[in-house]
């Protein structure tokens, strides 16, 4: 009896830690989505495809650099930058023409982008799946007092807060962050005081898509990289953003915590239908607070 309780406690905390590590990528991806949704008002369905693109790019860059730890770290920077550059091109030539359209059109347009990105991935990397190894420094796991935590999960647990702090700094302490916050509230007024709103939008879109790419390159060594890996994460990211409050980065953090933890704890309760728990959490939250947990920028 005593043993059983200890076992559940141990597995519980184990599961919480693993869940938190998974939450990191969810947070990184959904905060980017939330940023774009809050400032540009674009429900960017192609965000998931950019995440997938980030994973494939990270795979190729790491291979090109010889599969070393240095190559892996370089890919964590280069792959998101490449994704950000692609998104800049897309924003300048396509999306910037559509800002006045309603959300339905924007949603469908970004769906079209997602379709195109998917096929580009198919053309460049082929339809099969790829997998890459963790660099040797991240293989294996730490163990303390009966808990086993994979080293890479620990790394993710460090990256998550770093990204959150970086985003906080960017939004609250830099000029572009302040301008973009103002633009989220009143676009015309920001333009009226002589700021080039269009380029602010481009920059915010780039940052948001950079985060998608970063999320993709972070998960690249932990799962098989396939076409269609975008389809589930984009829905999850949208749910998190809606649950947290549209455009609120802290809402995205809170939302991904709820989502990730209900998911990982659900595995303990009902493995076959663990997927039901996070969705149920979203529904409960939205029934209690229809506009999301935290204040939305809309």
């Amino acid at each position: 009896m005593h043993l059983a309780v200890q076992l559940t406690l141990a597995s519980l905390s184990q599961q919480v830690l693993v869940g938190l590590a998974e939450t990191t990528t969810l947070f990184i991806v959904s905060s980017g989505l939330s940023l774009v949704l809050g400032v540009l008002r674009i429900p960017n369905i192609s965000h998931g495809a950019l995440y997938m693109l980030g994973a494939f790019l990270a795979y190729s860059i790491t291979r090109m650099l010889g599969g070393t730890a240095a190559g892996f770290f370089a890919s964590l920077l280069l792959a998101p930058l490449a994704v950000a550059f692609i998104s800049l091109v897309v924003e300048r030539f396509l999306l910037s023409r559509l800002y006045e359209r309603d959300h339905l059109m924007l949603l469908l347009f970004t769906f079209a982008l997602a379709l195109v990105f998917n096929d580009v991935v198919n053309i460049v990397w082929g339809a099969g799946y790829r997998s890459m190894q963790l660099p040797s420094m991240f293989q294996g796991s730490f163990s303390f007092s009966g808990l086993f935590l994979p080293r890479y999960s620990l790394f993710l647990l460090c990256v998550g807060p770093l990204v959150a702090i970086g985003l906080w700094f960017l939004i609250n302490r830099t000029k572009i962050g302040k301008i973009s916050r103002a633009a989220a509230v009143h676009r015309e007024m920001v333009g009226a005081v002589g700021i080039n709103v269009s380029w602010v939008f481009a920059a915010v879109f780039m940052i948001g898509c950079f985060l998608a790419g970063l999320g993709g390159s972070l998960v690249a060594p932990t799962q098989s990289i396939t076409q269609g890996m975008d389809a589930s994460i984009i829905i999850e990211a949208f749910l998190i953003v809606i649950m947290g409050g549209l455009g609120n980065v802290w809402g995205a953090l809170l939302g991904s915590l709820i989502f990730g933890l209900t998911d990982s704890l659900g595995v303990l309760i009902w493995p076959q239908f663990s997927i039901v728990f996070p969705y149920a959490a979203v529904i409960v939250v939205l029934l209690l607070r229809p506009a999301g947990l935290l204040r939305s920028t809309w």
Partner: peptide, 29 residues
């Protein structure tokens, strides 16, 4: 009944989530 309490984008997103839940159940069962 759950979704009409919200409007526009929130309506759509909540519906998307409920629908995905149905899909997940069908897919796993």
């Amino acid at each position: 009944a759950i979704c009409v309490r919200l409007s526009k984008l929130y309506f759509g997103m909540l519906q998307l989530s409920l629908g995905s839940l149905v899909w997940a159940i069908v897919y796993r069962w």
